[in-house]
């Protein structure tokens, strides 16, 4: 299933979202496939966990169901802000997703101008930016520049940053980009939104 998660729904955490989707599918009368064993649970797997507070219009979740036919989108009722946009039998694997297009609004406690925008642009288009990322096995220094592309920064009421970042191996997120900015350019508050998913050849992942 492909869905968007915006507005109030951006505060639902990854773990809670799985339970929320499960309940919505069961309410719609969809028969889920369960694991065997002492405590049976359905197979619901959300791709690329989304941080709390981040909006997205390109979320994907794999659900194992009984039967051959696709459920009716309209029958699935979800909390305010989650809208299912498509249901299909998957032909591609989640690990083929490589690039994630994001859009970030940066708010400051001062007036923003095109100079700030071009300064941020030049930071994010340097030859190399080494940041320290926390991984499961401790911390690791990586250069994020090879994992960022199509950066664009504009000035409007706030600073608008868009970019495509590596979604898997390594996983980057908007915070990594913002951490690369020096203190002067650090925003007070940001709104982050995922826009689209692409494979390694920059073909839209569907």
């Amino acid at each position: 299933m492909r869905y968007s998660k915006t507005g109030r729904a951006k505060y639902i955490s990854h773990l809670d979202l799985t339970a929320t989707l499960q309940r919505a599918l069961l309410r719609a009368g969809i028969k889920l496939k369960y694991s065997e064993g002492f405590n049976p649970h359905p197979y619901i797997s959300v791709a690329l966990p989304l941080s709390v507070g981040v909006e997205s219009i390109c979320e994907l979740v794999d659900v194992a169901i009984m039967g051959e036919s696709l459920p009716d989108v309209k029958a699935i009722k979800l909390p305010d802000g989650i809208i299912i946009t498509d249901i299909y039998f998957p032909s591609r694997k989640i690990n083929e997703i490589k690039w994630l297009e994001i859009s970030v609004k940066l708010y400051y406690d001062r007036e923003v101008d095109s100079e700030l925008a071009s300064n941020i642009m030049s930071v994010l288009t340097q030859d190399s930016i080494v940041i320290t990322k926390r991984t499961k096995r401790g911390t690791k220094d990586i250069d994020i520049i090879p994992h960022i592309r199509d950066v664009n920064v504009e000035c409007n009421d706030c600073i608008l940053l868009s970019a495509k970042i590596s979604a898997q191996e390594p996983t980057l997120n908007a915070v990594d980009l913002l951490n690369a900015l020096c203190d002067d350019f650090k925003p007070l508050h940001t709104d982050v939104k995922r826009i689209e998913l692409y494979d390694a050849k920059m073909v839209k992942f569907e």
């Binding site: 109030r8 505060y11 639902i12 507070g53 508050h189 709104d191």
Partner: peptide, 24 residues
């Protein structure tokens, strides 16, 4: 509508889904 002031606050607190409503 959620105000920008509240949005800013919700980005800082623990478990913001307690305060955002919108449930089914």
């Amino acid at each position: 509508m959620i105000s920008q002031k509240l949005e800013k606050v919700l980005s800082k607190v623990q478990k913001p889904a307690r305060y955002s409503g919108g449930e089914y």
